[in-house]
Design a protein around this nucleic acid. Structure first.
Lengths: 156, 156
DNA sequence: TATGAAAGGTTGAACCC
DNA sequence: GGGTTCAACCTTTCATA
């Protein structure tokens, strides 16, 4: 499936929805860009079909939600098992994201949240039980993400 | 700001919306859990007021979108400027997320996407220009995230 | 705090240019 | 590809227990 080039409208739609999906209707985007709502809906639907849109998620402030400990666990996995171990790490309760790095010693970065040290100890044990070697663990002070604004278009 | 305990319905609502917000209406959640739709909407609205819900974002497959290079850049920032530099890093075109670590040498992890090596070189230069010291750079093979799913454990 | 009902907005599909 | 229309669904607001 050859991935087509994105045009300016595609990128604008993605930008707007990446910033806020609940508060941004197709009609709003269409109005701001100057096309009809159904044009925007068609683009969204096409982007989904092409697999460029992977999903849509609520963004939770775990600290506010009572999970004060936000930690990143650096692990080592043998390359052949790296991908499978990364997937399995996601099933450990408390884990919220996993990054697989192409190379390097610490090639799996697991992020997990917990309410207390006991939670984190258990998570560490669970990860080790899967076969991951834990190299280091650090507290995360903050995490930000943002839309791809590659296309330094207007912001609003 | 006393962070209230989340009850089982709160956690279920968060779980469902974290998994898929576009495809999950309040009515669906209400039906699956066995309460009325407006009960679910009130919960969502309360979670927003309390700051537990921070936003909602589209999840993009950057590789499919034509940004083949997915890289993590490990940086060092002096603690007093760490938070501000982390925020500023978000403004660099191509940067999609930033994590600040509490301690350690490499205390800012920047994730960026690009179409080619030139993009990445420019991003590196931009980060350095902000005052970040770049320690290392690695290609990311994959990134997964998942809802917080240890709701079955807690009781209240 | 949970529920129900009416009004207005949003979506997806079929059809036309 | 872009646009229009319409039925079904969703959300907001208000009223009620």
């Amino acid at each position: 499936m050859p991935s087509n080039e994105l045009d300016e409208l595609d990128r604008y739609v993605i930008y707007r929805l990446q910033k806020d999906i609940r508060g941004t209707s197709a009609a709003t985007i269409a109005n701001d860009y100057g096309v009809s709502p159904s044009t925007v809906r068609k683009r969204i639907s096409r982007l989904e079909d092409e697999g460029i849109i992977r999903g849509s998620h609520l963004d939770i402030d775990y600290e506010q939600a009572g999970y004060q400990l936000f930690t990143i666990i650096f692990c080592t996995a043998p390359i052949p098992e790296r991908e499978q171990l990364a997937q399995e790490a996601l099933t450990v309760p408390g884990v919220v994201s996993v990054r697989e790095l192409m190379t390097g010693e610490e090639n799996i970065h697991v992020v997990a949240v917990g309410r207390d040290g006991d939670d984190l100890s258990r998570i560490g044990r669970d990860l080790a039980a899967l076969g991951l070697e834990i190299v280091e663990e650090e507290l995360v002070h903050n995490e930000y993400s943002c839309p791809l604004h590659w296309f330094d278009k207007q912001s609003d």
